Simulated scan of single mutants.
Amino acid sequence: MRFSTGRRAFVAGAAAALAFSTLPVLAQNDKPLRVILPVSTGSGVDAIMRAIGPAFSKALGQPVVIENLPGAGGITGTQTLVKAAPDGQTIAVVSNNHVVNPSIYKKMPFDSLADITPITVGGATPFVLVANAERVPARNVKELTVLLKAKRDGVSYASSGNGTILHLASAMVLDEAGAKALHVPYKGVGPMVTDLVGGQVDFGVVSVPSVVPHIKSGKLRAIGVTGKERIAALPDVPTVAEQGLPGVDVAGWFALVGPAKLPPEQVKRIYNAFITAANTPEVKQAMDKQVTILNPMTPEASAQYFRNEQERYARIVKKANITME
């Protein structure tokens, strides 16, 4: 299963929410819902949830308190979530790294599938393969592939860190193209983009919002979107898949999860509230500005998506021989 940027799943999710609304309504309370973000303030997921927060709180009928607990690729914050009581008062918002970590870390303090309760895979921020316009003459995937094979390890690619989703996204492109390049890991997206623009590194896969200004300025060249569909923010940029690498399908998704054994009525209460918030004009407008596509999955579909994604990234990690202590 892959994350679709179409509207069908959103409509299906909304219909499911209406079906769930026949359940007994839980009493409103003044106790805040604690939302743990295993990422730093100002990151993509942080910006998304802070924009959704007010509408989410209104739909829940209770305050929402967002708490950033970054560290160890999301493990630190998620470990706090798995230790929380399954009473519907604490959830976390995780991303791709949650299902990647079991494959790159030799030891994990929790089971990424058994120790959580998926509520909804809420949406995704598209990724784009970009190259420094001065250093790399290639204008499409075919030309980049020819360049990579001609120069072999003479071309470098950036990532936001070893084992991160942006690292795996580029590894996926290279594997599909049957090519190799020198990996240059950075400590975060900011320095990664800075060096891409500055020409210290040749290419990389990065979230669309991080590089749109640099694409428009001509400093970076968009080679291809890494999802299955083109996106409104870059309408003239074809997907990598339609350029001959159909196995490349990756975006930065986020999901709401609770501790293990979260009661079904609490799962559906939070899921319904997220659907309601996602459908408000103010949230839609905010997501458009952030180039984030909300396409909420049902709890059941989300659980299957987690399993599928973990298996998929395990294969990619093994091929790329990525390990972390």
Rank of each mutant, 00 (worst) to 15 (best):
A251F: 01
N295G: 02
Q310L: 01
D195P: 12
R315W: 04
V155Y: 14
A14T: 04
L166S: 15
G77Y: 07
A277D: 00
R50A: 02
R139V: 04
Q243G: 14
S57G: 14
G61L: 14
G258T: 14
A47R: 04
F203Y: 13
T194N: 09
D195V: 00
G178C: 13
I91Q: 09
V141P: 03
K187I: 03
T276Q: 08
I119M: 07
R34H: 13
L234N: 04
S95V: 00
E134G: 10
T292N: 10
T120W: 00
S43A: 14
V128I: 11
V11P: 01
A150G: 01
S302D: 00
G188W: 11
V11K: 09
D30T: 10
S43N: 10
V257Y: 02
K261I: 07
M1A: 08
V45F: 05
E311D: 09
K228L: 03
P32G: 07
P109N: 07
L294N: 03
E143T: 11
Q266P: 03
P246G: 10
I322W: 09
G42Y: 01
D288R: 14
T90S: 02
I66A: 12
I36R: 14
A232H: 05
P246A: 08
F20H: 08
V141C: 04
L18A: 08
E282D: 15
R135N: 13
V99F: 04
L60D: 12
A124R: 00
T80W: 08
Q200C: 10
A255L: 05
V283E: 06
I91C: 12
T164W: 15
F3T: 00
L256N: 01
K319G: 03
Y186F: 14
L234P: 06
D195I: 03
N68M: 11
A260V: 15
G163Y: 07
I322A: 03
A131F: 11
G244W: 05
V212W: 01
K284R: 15
V130S: 12
I48E: 00
T90N: 01
D175V: 00
G123H: 08
T80F: 06
A59G: 13
H98E: 01
L81C: 10
M297W: 14
Q285L: 15
E143A: 13
A277R: 02
S210P: 05
Q266A: 04
N140I: 06
V39R: 12
I91N: 10
A273P: 00
I104S: 11
S210Q: 12
G163V: 08
P238Q: 00
V205M: 02
H183S: 11
A55F: 12
A84S: 08
V141N: 04
A59F: 12
K58I: 10
L148S: 05
V193C: 03
L174T: 08
P109M: 03
A233G: 10
